[in-house]
Design a protein around this nucleic acid. Structure first.
Lengths: 164, 164
DNA sequence: GGAGCATGATTGACGCGTCAATCACTTCGG
DNA sequence: CCGAAGTGATTGACGCGTCAATCATGCTCC
C-alpha cells in the first residue's frame, strides 16, 4: 500500500481498473464496428447516414435547419456540411433555401431517403437486440443505465481540459 | 403484449432497451473522444499512435514483426502499414528489414518514440482514472467487467453476418 | 529447378472528420 | 443608409481507415 499516501486521483489505475477500462472501451468499439458493418452490408447506409436520416425522419415535415440538425446529432457544423453534400449526391436528402433567413438552409428527407431509412431500420434494430440486448440480463441492462449515467455526469462535470 | 407471440430475438428493442443501448454506445464514444483529445493536446500523440507505441514498448527488444504488431493491436494490415509510414515520418518508429524472411519487416521503437510514449503515459492514465475509474464505484467496476465479458462472448459467438 | 500458389507487406483510390479560413447574409451603431 | 460585427453555413487541406490491387519473397510439388 505505498500508494495510500498519495491522493487517489493522481495515481495511475491499478491493473484491475485498467482491465475494466480496456474491456469497456474495446467492447464498445467492437460492438460499434460490428453494427456499422452489418448496417452497411444490409442497407448500404453508414451509421452516420442512419443518424442523419433518423433525426430527419423524426422532425416535423421531415426537414430541419442545418444548425438544428447539427445540434440534434451532436456533430460539428463542417462535418454535417460535408456529410450532407455526400448524402445529397446519393439522393438521400435535399437542401432547400430557408425562406426567413437567406443565410440558412433547410435539409429535407427525400422519398428515397425515407425509404432507405425505413428499410434499414428493422434489421438494424434487430442487430442491436442480437448483439447487445440479448447478451445481457435485465439486471445488467439496468446496470448499464446506471453506469452510463455516472460516466456521463462525470463527463459533464469535467470541463474538457482536465479537472482541478 | 402483442409482441409475446413473436420470438424475442426478432422483435425490435423496447424503448427502455434502446435507451440503455444508446446510452452505452454514446457514452463510450464521448469518453473515447475526450481521452483522445486530451492525449493529443498533452502529448501530440493520437490514440492510434499510443496503441502502437504501447505494443512496441511491451515487446522484446522494443521491436515486432509487422504482422505480430497487427495482431497485437487488432488492426488491418493496410491500416497498420499506412500508420507506420506516418509514424516513421515523425521519427516515432523505424522499419528494419527482417533477417530470416525478406518479405517481412520489423518495426522498432526509436528513442524519440520511447520517450514520447513515456511522457504521454502518465497523464493519459491519470485521465483514464479521472474520467472513468473515479466516476464509478468498485462494485460498478466489477459490473463493467461482467458486462463486457458477456458482450464479448456474444460477439465471439455471432459469426459477423447475423446469427441463427 | 521451375511453375504456381501462398504469404508478408505496401500502395492507390476514395469516403470520412477536423481544423482553419471563408463566403453570404443579417443586425446593430452611428 | 453604411460600415462593422455577428451568425449560418460551406470549403479546402490534410490526416485517417477501408477495400481492392499489387509487389516481392518464400514454399511446394512434379
Amino acid at each position: 500500500m505505498t500508494d495510500s499516501t498519495r491522493p487517489r486521483a493522481r495515481r495511475s489505475p491499478t491493473p484491475d481498473e485498467l482491465r475494466a477500462w480496456r474491456g469497456f472501451i474495446e467492447t464498445a468499439q467492437t460492438l460499434n464496428a460490428r453494427l456499422t458493418s452489418r448496417l452497411q452490408k444490409e442497407s448500404g447506409l453508414t451509421s452516420a447516414d442512419y443518424t442523419v436520416l433518423l433525426a430527419l425522419s423524426e422532425a416535423d415535415g421531415r426537414r430541419l435547419r442545418s444548425s438544428e440538425l447539427a445540434d440534434a446529432v451532436d456533430w460539428e457544423r463542417s462535418r454535417l456540411s460535408h456529410h450532407l453534400r455526400r448524402m445529397e449526391n446519393r439522393d438521400l436528402v435535399r437542401r432547400v433555401e430557408c425562406a426567413d433567413d437567406f443565410r440558412g438552409a433547410e435539409v429535407e428527407l427525400t422519398d428515397h431517403g425515407a425509404r432507405s431509412f425505413r428499410a434499414a431500420s428493422v434489421p438494424h434494430l434487430r442487430a442491436v437486440r442480437e448483439l447487445f440486448v440479448d447478451a445481457l440480463t435485465p439486471e445488467q441492462l439496468d446496470q448499464v443505465e446506471a453506469l452510463t449515467a455516472a460516466l456521463r455526469s462525470r463527463l459533464d462535470t469535467a470541463p474538457d481540459r482536465a479537472a482541478g
